[in-house]
Amino acid sequence: MNRWMVTGAVMLMTTGAASAQPGPGCPAGPDELIEQAAAEAAAHDNAGDDHAADEDVHEEANRLLGEGNAHYEADDFAGALSAYRSAYILTRHPQLLYSIAQAHRRAEDLACALAFYRSYLAQRAAAPNTGGNSYAEQAREHIEDIEASLAAEDAQARAALTTAEQDLAQALDALEAKHGVEGAAALRRRRAQIGYEDAIADPARRPEVQARLAALRADVDRADAQLAAAQRRAQERARTNERGLLRKRIGLLSLGLGAALTGIGAIELSNRGDGPRGWAFALAGAVGVTAGLASYASGVYIGSQADRVAVIPVVAPAGLGVAVSGRF
């Protein structure tokens, strides 16, 4: 059995529409696979085996190809990749790199598909007698399509990152305009540490930076809500203090009036004896004093309640918190 018999089974698995969604990268790329296959061949050579002509090796390779093809037809591209990679390690035939690229493309992992299509063309150029001219042309077409898709995806990712960063900047400006520089200072420091410029240049950092921008944007909204609530509480405390102060003023006025009436009643009683007019003044004065004391006491109580507890939002570099102050 020769190597062309192995390759023939691979060529059957070369159809399928290209995906428009890029994969996250290609950690187990063609370079690693080629190195692994070369090491395996060297091990056989050192052991005195004729690796290329070994019937058992080719039978195992054909078995793996059949297994890979079955997985591919069932849209089990992870299974197909495992079988194709194992077959390549045994045969080191470039056409298998094409089949691996196809499986990656169908699995919507365009980064790996692109790497394997390029490796297939490079390996094929190094071994021009391996055939498969039509597949080389298809590989070039797939490369063009994938490069266009990845470029469009990269542009969309950059635009999304820029939009998120600009939205955050506007939110911080609005927060500062409403609550002052101190309310936004800590959040601005966190924004400066996110690494937006690095993520624009490095696609691998974009998911992390996108998540950090979203988290900081949410913190800005929370800070705005908490600072606004603190302002409302401060306004309510001010109104409560005003009510308490008004009650105390009314109480003092009533105390003064009651004391004056009591004095008039005492004068009337001392000058004219036990007359009703004197007792009327004295009674009115007592009522005024009592009402004044009650009003003043209620004013003191209202003021103490307004000043008892103040909950103040605190925006710090590590996050958001509150400070509690007052009399307990």
Rank of each mutant, 00 (worst) to 15 (best):
225 A>M: 04
290 T>Q: 11
228 A>P: 07
279 W>I: 08
262 T>E: 08
263 G>A: 03
246 L>R: 05
179 H>E: 07
185 A>V: 08
186 A>G: 04
221 D>E: 13
230 A>M: 00
228 A>K: 03
273 G>Y: 12
223 A>L: 02
207 P>G: 06
201 A>T: 07
246 L>P: 13
179 H>N: 08
282 A>E: 03
264 I>P: 08
205 R>Q: 12
198 D>S: 14
279 W>M: 08
269 L>N: 00
254 S>N: 09
230 A>Q: 00
232 R>W: 06
242 E>K: 02
216 L>W: 02
256 G>W: 03
194 I>E: 11
229 A>I: 07
292 G>V: 03
247 R>S: 10
207 P>C: 07
222 R>A: 14
181 V>S: 12
292 G>N: 01
247 R>V: 03
175 L>M: 01
196 Y>E: 10
216 L>P: 00
246 L>E: 06
218 A>L: 05
180 G>A: 06
291 A>N: 13
251 G>N: 05
197 E>M: 11
281 F>L: 06
192 A>G: 10
191 R>S: 14
251 G>T: 03
219 D>A: 11
255 L>I: 14
285 G>E: 01
176 E>L: 05
238 A>E: 14
185 A>E: 14
234 A>K: 14
251 G>P: 15
240 T>Y: 05
259 A>L: 15
231 Q>K: 07
220 V>W: 02
242 E>S: 01
219 D>W: 00
211 A>R: 03
186 A>F: 05
292 G>M: 08
247 R>L: 15
234 A>R: 13
246 L>K: 02
264 I>S: 02
192 A>H: 10
188 R>A: 12
271 N>G: 11
269 L>C: 02
185 A>H: 11
189 R>P: 15
229 A>E: 08
290 T>S: 07
284 A>H: 03
207 P>N: 04
215 A>V: 15
190 R>Q: 14
280 A>P: 09
279 W>D: 10
183 G>Y: 00
214 A>S: 06
253 L>P: 15
223 A>W: 01
250 I>K: 05
190 R>D: 11
207 P>D: 05
221 D>W: 02
186 A>T: 09
248 K>E: 13
177 A>H: 07
232 R>P: 03
211 A>Q: 08
276 P>Q: 12
200 I>D: 09
287 V>K: 09
179 H>C: 13
237 R>C: 00
264 I>V: 15
210 Q>E: 15
222 R>C: 06
181 V>W: 11
280 A>K: 06
214 A>E: 09
224 D>R: 00
184 A>L: 10
268 E>I: 03
188 R>K: 15
269 L>M: 05
225 A>T: 14
180 G>I: 04
176 E>M: 11
183 G>E: 04
198 D>L: 08
275 G>L: 13
215 A>S: 08
218 A>Q: 09
224 D>W: 02
279 W>E: 10
278 G>K: 00
203 P>A: 07
231 Q>T: 09
283 L>Y: 08
268 E>R: 01
176 E>G: 09
178 K>P: 15
226 Q>A: 14
179 H>L: 09
178 K>Q: 12
211 A>D: 09
196 Y>D: 12
200 I>F: 06
247 R>K: 13
220 V>Y: 01
197 E>A: 14
244 G>C: 03
177 A>L: 07
244 G>P: 09
291 A>P: 07
190 R>T: 15
185 A>L: 12
293 L>E: 12
251 G>C: 08
239 R>N: 12
210 Q>C: 08
197 E>L: 13
